[in-house]
Simulated scan of single mutants.
Amino acid sequence: MGRFQWLEAALPLGIIAGMLCVMGNAQYLIHKAYFGRPKHIGNDMWDVAMERRDKKLEEEIAAAAGN
């Protein structure tokens, strides 16, 4: 009986690890569904400024193509 004492802890640890994976994947999928792209990890002020610039340029191109 002493050989399988680790098995008592394996089931709860497996459940906890599984739920952490489920929560992480759910967060990823919800963010991707809402924004249409994966979350940018490590987004700093430079990245935010570049995203604004890119969005502005895309809008200008779309407006020029519409004329």
Rank of each mutant, 00 (worst) to 15 (best):
K32R: 14
L11S: 13
P38A: 14
Y28N: 09
I15V: 15
N25V: 09
K32F: 02
D47G: 11
V22W: 11
L7F: 13
R37G: 09
A49I: 06
W46S: 08
K55E: 10
D47A: 03
N67Y: 12
A63D: 00
L20K: 07
M50K: 01
N25Y: 10
H31G: 10
M23T: 12
R53M: 03
R37Y: 02
M45E: 14
A65T: 00
N25K: 07
E58Y: 06
I61T: 06
A49L: 08
A10C: 15
A10Y: 10
K56P: 00
Y34Q: 11
C21W: 12
L11E: 14
E59S: 02
K32C: 06
D47E: 09
P12R: 02
R3C: 09
L29A: 09
M1A: 11
P12L: 03
A49E: 13
K39S: 07
G24S: 05
G42W: 02
I16W: 15
N67L: 02
V48Y: 07
A64C: 01
W6Y: 08
I15P: 01
A65N: 08
L29E: 12
A17Y: 12
Y28A: 06
W46M: 12
A63K: 10
L20S: 13
N67T: 08
G24T: 10
I16L: 14
I30L: 07
K55P: 00
I61E: 08
E8S: 13
E58G: 00
Y28C: 08
Y34V: 13
E8Q: 13
I41T: 05
Y28S: 10
K55S: 01
Q27D: 15
A49S: 10
A10S: 13
F35L: 02
P12Q: 06
M23R: 09
G14W: 10
L13I: 10
P38S: 11
P38W: 04
L20Y: 03
